[in-house]
Each structure stands twice: as C-alpha cells, then as structure tokens.
Design a binder for these strands. Structure first.
Lengths: 205, 205
DNA sequence: CATTTCCTCACCCTTCTGAGGCAGGGACTC
DNA sequence: GAGTCCCTGCCTCAGAAGGGTGAGGAAATG
C-alpha cells in the first residue's frame, strides 16, 4: 500500500519536480496537487492523503492557514512544510499549527524522500538548520500581535506619527512599541528591525 | 536536431521539474545541470548548449555574474533567466548582461517551453509583468555603485556615522548619498528605501 | 485571588535624520 | 574644451527617533 501524497505549491515547475521524484519511488504515489492553500484544503477533503507536502508562500491562502484549516478537520493529518527559505518564526508557527516536518527546498532527493517516509510513519522531523535557528531563538520573547502590526507599518516606511494615526493610538504608545520591538529583535534601529523581521519570518515581504 | 539545454538552479527539485518537463518534448534535450554560477560556467564550457536556463539567486556565484562570464567567452550564448521573483533592477541587469529572456518560475509549462523555442531561434522574450515594471522604472535614474553600497549598509542597520566610518568618508558625505537615494527611490525615509531596494532588486536579502 | 502580560500613555533628554542649498575635483564623453 | 555625472564635503535647522523610567487598566493565566 503506497504512501498517498498531496503536493501543494504555487510553482508548477516545482510540483513537476516532486511528481517526477515520487514517480521513481514504488512505495509512493502522488494523488493530487494544489497551487494554493484554498485548493489544498479542497484536495485534502477529496483525497485525504497520507502525507501532504505544503509550501508556505502562496497566493490565495498561505500554507500556515491551510495547515490550520486541514488539521482542524483532520487532526491526524500529516503535513510536511517544504519551503525555499523562511525564518525561524515561520517554522515555529508551522510546527505549532501541526506540521510534522519543516524541510527546505533544495535538499537532495534522498532527504526529502526519507522525510516523507518518516512522517508517513508518524515521526516528526526537523531540518538541522531550522532546528538550530529554533533553538537559538526559541528562548527569545517573540513579538506581540500589536508589535507585529507596528513593525509591518514601519516596514512600509511609516513614521511613528503615521503609525499612531493608522492604529489610532498615541504617538508615545507607538514609540513604546517600537522600543520594545528593537529590544526584542536586538536591532540597532527601525530599519534593522525590519530586515531582521523579514529574515526571521515575523513579517512578510 | 533537438535543442540542447543547460539548466542552472540551486534547487534540486526545480531542476528535476525542468528535466521532467523537457523530457516530454521531442525537440529538446537536457544536456547538463548546474547548481551554482561557477558550475554553470564550467558546464557551459563542456557542453556549449543551445539554450541555458539560469536562476539568479545562487550560492557560489550569482546568475548575473555567470551570464556575464559565459557571454564574455561565448557572445552568442542564449540564456534565459528563470527566477521566482525579482525586481525590475535585477531584470534590467540580467538583460543588460546579455540574457535573452526573463521569465518567472511558476509559469505554466507551455509558456516556458515556448520561451525556450523562441530563444533557441534567436528571439528575445520578456514577461509582460516584468516588461511593465521595466517600462515603469527605466526612466528613473538608477542608483550609483556608491549609493548601492550605502543602501546596503543602511539595510544592516548602520547609522550615517557608522556608514561613513566603514566607507572612510565624512558623515556629511554619507548623508548626501542617503539624500540622493531617498530622492531616486522616492522613499519616505531610510527604512522605506531599504524595502524599495529589496523589492526592486537593488540590494539583496 | 494573585500574577503576569499586553496595551496604553506620559515626561525628559540626547542623538540622528532628512530637507535644502552650495561647491570643488576627478573622470568620462562628445 | 565643454558638458555631465559621480563622489566628495560643508552649513543650517526643524523634526523624528531612540534611551530611560514609570505607571494604570484590561485580560488572561495560574
């Protein structure tokens, strides 16, 4: 009984690569593909695959929301996050959402196939790189929702005054949030904070 | 006589996808793969393919430098840039370096195959999206080398004083560069400039 | 109920930033 | 040789950013 796999990625070429890779394995079969989070949920509903390979960056519904949606309906769903690169915060969120593994695209075939087999057996598996990142930062206090909101506005080039206006809070409050963000991310200034936020997956591009 | 193709990308999975795609076409054959710019030049030297598919973001030597190196040796080399997403500046530089086409990953098979055929016949081809971006910004004066250098330092969270120290120039000069950058990119402040620089491919991640 | 976290706001103070204008020297082009 | 672009430097000055500290209310957590 082969491992039934669903592949979710908005890059057709990459899905093609996965398909080709899986086709070479006698114990695996690709039962469906999806190019967005929304499609992923639909396809999962249709096929209920043993393992789902899920990208995070997608158009219609991101991977993390898709993971949450799928596991809300099927708590046993085994999902592997397969992403180009993403900061530790994204990895953390994905794992918290119920992902079984977090692997980077660009890995050699063997590693990806092994991860699929491991996960299909119910084992969890984290990339050494990602694990190191997680270990390094998991102790760090992460940003609060409000701080993420502020940082996002900072990333758009807003001044404290404009941020305050948009969030309908006092400018002093905005400054307090900024100060907190700088301290938590260990950033030199707001620009640095934005870069670190991007790198670590706190804010999107 | 099939179109002989070299595929350059640091993602093994994506190369796999390309390979699978090309394998379905009777008039194309994949003669070599490379996972870095350096390898790309070596493989080109070995096989002198009709068409090269080249990613831009790679570890050892980036795609643009690889294009320049290859076309320095073989001015007739037909290279297609195949990238996930990149700003207009990168596209501009790639085309200037001698790329025949600039297409985004995530396109459907047909478009990619058509581009390969067009380029193999010597036609150039630009993505509509990318072309629009280029048209929109090509009038803009681009950043000077020094300004790019300054912006890169800004992105690392350096103050004007530190930037000046690292470049061994006066802080006032650093400020002049910053002012010029802000004006050219039409940015509100340095943070905004960094974001715009990232989006447009002026600076890397 | 006690504690903690988060969001909110306030005040003081120093430093940095960004707008504006100006100008000389070097390199390159026409 | 004239013009242009780039890099460099200087000045002023208002406004913004950031460090430090404190503190109150709301909500969640134990």
């Amino acid at each position: 009984m082969p491992i039934r796999i669903l592949c979710v990625d908005d890059h057709a070429l990459l899905r093609e690569g996965i398909a080709a890779l899986i086709a070479t394995q006698s114990d695996m079969t690709l039962v469906a593909e999806a190019s967005s989070g929304r499609e992923a949920v639909a396809q999962f509903r249709l096929h209920q695959p043993d393992v789902t390979l899920m990208d995070l960056q997608m158009g219609e519904m991101n991977g993390i929301d898709a993971i949450i949606a799928i596991r809300a309906e099927w708590p046993g769903a085994k999902i592997i996050v397969l992403t180009t690169y993403a900061g530790d915060v994204l990895a953390q969120r994905a794992l918290k959402a119920g992902a079984f593994a977090y692997v980077l695209k660009g890995l050699i075939r063997k590693d990806i196939l092994e991860t699929i087999r491991d996960v299909s057996r119910g084992l969890k598996r984290i990339e050494p790189n990602v694990a190191a990142d997680l270990a390094q930062h998991q102790a760090d206090t992460s940003l609060t929702p409000r701080e993420v909101q502020v940082l996002t506005l900072v990333a758009s080039g807003n001044s404290n005054k404009l941020i305050a206006a948009q969030l309908q809070i006092n400018e002093e409050t905005a400054k307090t949030h900024i100060k907190s963000i700088l301290a938590k991310l260990d950033a030199n200034d707001r620009t640095h904070a934005v870069i670190l936020g991007l790198r670590r997956g706190v804010i999107g591009f």
